[in-house]
């Protein structure tokens, strides 16, 4: 019953070799075996979303996964978002500017939810974003400013992409010239 399994996890680009009982959830392993306490645990039945992390790029509930299940996956947690020197990412910056967090407990889950979603759907509308924000629970904000923050981040990313395209060197011989 105290069987311990050897588990190789890849989290935020780092490999970890762990000896853990198979029943340990990914959420507990991230927090208590790897010390990545940014991922929070709010319900342990998949509804509140505080433990949302990216598994191979897709948002998933870390409380509904056993760490041993995701050995071959790339896991990303909230700790991967900021620069190593602490500089906040554009998404984090938007949350701060829009007051998209109060107590901050649900925030890592929302950040990872948004990070995964915007990567897949960069053109998402505010209504689509709101529907995805409905995946997680927040008890402080009433959700409006979370939606605003993610929507603003998406706009900024689109604008940045457009600016990059606009400043890209023109093709030399346009066929319509």
């Amino acid at each position: 019953m105290t069987d311990v399994a050897l588990v190789e996890l890849h989290v935020n680009g780092e490999r970890h070799d762990l000896a853990i009982p198979p029943r340990r959830t990914l959420a507990d392993v991230l927090r208590h075996d790897l010390g990545l306490t940014g991922t929070h645990v709010g319900c342990e039945h998949g509804i509140c979303g505080a433990c949302t992390v990216l598994v191979d790029g897709a948002p998933a509930r870390a409380c509904l996964l056993f760490a041993i299940q995701v050995e071959n996956a790339e896991i990303r947690t909230v700790e991967s978002l900021a620069d190593p020197d602490g500089g906040l990412s554009d998404l984090q910056q938007c949350f701060s500017e829009h007051h998209g967090l109060q107590c901050g407990f649900c925030t890592p889950g929302f950040l990872m939810l948004a990070e995964g979603y915007l990567a897949e759907e960069p053109e998402a509308t505010r209504e689509e974003i709101r529907e995805v924000v409905a995946s997680n629970l927040c008890r402080c904000t009433g959700y409006q400013t979370i939606t605003d923050a993610i929507d603003d981040c998406a706009s900024r990313r689109r604008a940045a992409l457009q600016a990059a395209l606009d400043t890209a060197p023109e093709p030399t011989a346009g066929s319509t010239a």
Binding site: R31, H32, G35, L36, T37, G38, T39, H40, V41, T77, V78, E79, L81, A82, G86, L88, Q92, F95, S96, E97, H99, L101, G104, F105, T107, P108, L111
Partner: peptide, 21 residues
């Protein structure tokens, strides 16, 4: 003004009671 609390909470570097070992 920007909230003093935000940077650590956004970076996952807050310290809630279950974060203490």
């Amino acid at each position: 003004v920007p909230r003093r609390e935000d940077p650590r909470l956004l970076a996952g570097r807050g310290r809630f009671v279950d974060d203490i070992t």
